Amino acid sequence: MYCEKLLKVKNNKDSSKFLIDSLIIHKLDDYLKNYITLRERRNINPVKFAIEKQIQYKTAMMLFVIGSRESLFRMRLFFECNCGEHIELETTKDKIMCECGLIGEYQELKDSIKLYFELLEKPIKCEWDVDINGETDFLNEFDIAKYDNSFSSIEKVGDPGLIKSIDSLCLLNIRNDTMKEYLDSEGF
């Protein structure tokens, strides 16, 4: 399923709009197999991927969003409080509450909400031809400070559907998890 899901990402109707082609898929495949640990596969930072694999920021972000739509990844949202607490969020719609007493809304705290992706499939060897001669714009070391994986930074990507996609995928994850728990409890 891993290879099939990579191909679904490449063939997704939105992929060409964000320059996601065979070369980008090859770089993602290589990154997932060779650049991150098993533990890091639970919290993949798309910005780190963009920098390490020299891919445009917008392309990398949308690669992971589309990968979530195709069930290759699951989005994970974390609020990083000033007190040092990290709280996983179910959605961007709820109030954010920390043990230190901080209470806020997404719009107020979006600089402290980080987006990560969990790989849902075990990477395996895929057989396909890749044209690796294409050129790609990339982020260099000086760009690292400009980009992060906070919601305020993601909004700068400029695609109005991106945040909407993130919200719907978060709600979809909640619904799927709830349905799975219900089915498991009923013995299905």
Score class of each variant (00 low, 15 high):
Tyr2Arg: 07
Tyr2Gln: 07
Cys3Glu: 07
Cys3Tyr: 06
Cys3Phe: 02
Lys5His: 11
Lys5Cys: 01
Lys5Leu: 13
Leu6Glu: 00
Leu6Gln: 04
Leu6Cys: 03
Leu7Cys: 00
Asn11Arg: 11
Asn11Val: 03
Asn12Leu: 07
Ser16Ala: 06
Lys17Arg: 14
Leu19Trp: 07
Ile20Glu: 10
Ser22Thr: 10
Ile25Val: 07
His26Gln: 08
Leu28Met: 08
Leu28Gln: 06
Leu32His: 04
Tyr35Met: 09
Tyr35His: 12
Thr37Asn: 10
Thr37Arg: 13
Leu38Met: 01
Arg39Gly: 12
Glu40Lys: 11
Arg41Ala: 08
Arg42His: 10
Arg42Ala: 09
Asn43Thr: 14
Ile44Cys: 07
Val47Arg: 09
Phe49Met: 00
Ala50His: 09
Ile51Arg: 12
Lys53Val: 03
Gln54Lys: 15
Ile55Tyr: 08
Tyr57Arg: 02
Tyr57Pro: 03
Lys58Ala: 14
Thr59Phe: 08
Met61Trp: 03
Met62Cys: 01
Met62Trp: 15
Leu63Pro: 02
Phe64Thr: 02
Val65Gly: 02
Gly67Val: 05
Glu70Ile: 11
Glu70Gly: 07
Met75Gly: 00
Arg76Ile: 08
Arg76Asp: 00
Arg76His: 11
Phe78Leu: 11
Phe78Tyr: 14
Glu80Gly: 02
Cys83Lys: 07
His86Pro: 00
Ile87Lys: 12
Ile87Leu: 12
Glu88Asn: 11
Leu89Phe: 04
Thr91Phe: 03
Thr91Asn: 12
Thr91Pro: 02
Thr91Lys: 12
Thr91Ile: 05
Thr92Cys: 10
Cys98Leu: 10
Cys98Val: 06
Gly104Asn: 10
Glu105Ser: 10
Tyr106Gly: 00
Leu109Val: 08
Lys110Thr: 04
Ser112Asp: 13
Leu115Lys: 04
Leu115His: 06
Leu119Cys: 13
Leu119Thr: 01
Glu121Asp: 13
Glu121Cys: 13
Lys122Trp: 03
Pro123Glu: 05
Lys125Ile: 10
Trp128Thr: 12
Asp129Cys: 04
Asp129Glu: 12
Val130Met: 01
Val130Arg: 08
Asp131Trp: 00
Asn133Ile: 04
Thr136Pro: 00
Phe138Asp: 02
Leu139Tyr: 01
Phe142Thr: 13
Asp143Asn: 12
Ile144Val: 15
Ile144His: 03
Lys146Thr: 11
Lys146Tyr: 13
Tyr147Glu: 13
Asp148Thr: 09
Asn149Asp: 09
Asn149Pro: 00
Phe151Lys: 07
Ser153Phe: 05
Ser153Met: 02
Ile154Asp: 03
Ile154Glu: 02
Lys156Phe: 04
Pro160Arg: 06
Gly161Met: 11
Leu162His: 11
Leu162Lys: 08
Ile163Leu: 14
Lys164Gly: 03
Ile166Asp: 09
Ile166Leu: 15
Ile166Thr: 12
Leu171Val: 09
Leu172Pro: 00
Ile174His: 06
Ile174Cys: 07
Arg175Met: 09
Asn176Trp: 04
Lys180Ile: 07
Glu181Ile: 06
Tyr182Ala: 14
Leu183Asp: 08
Asp184Cys: 01
Asp184Gln: 14
Glu186Ala: 06
Phe188Val: 14
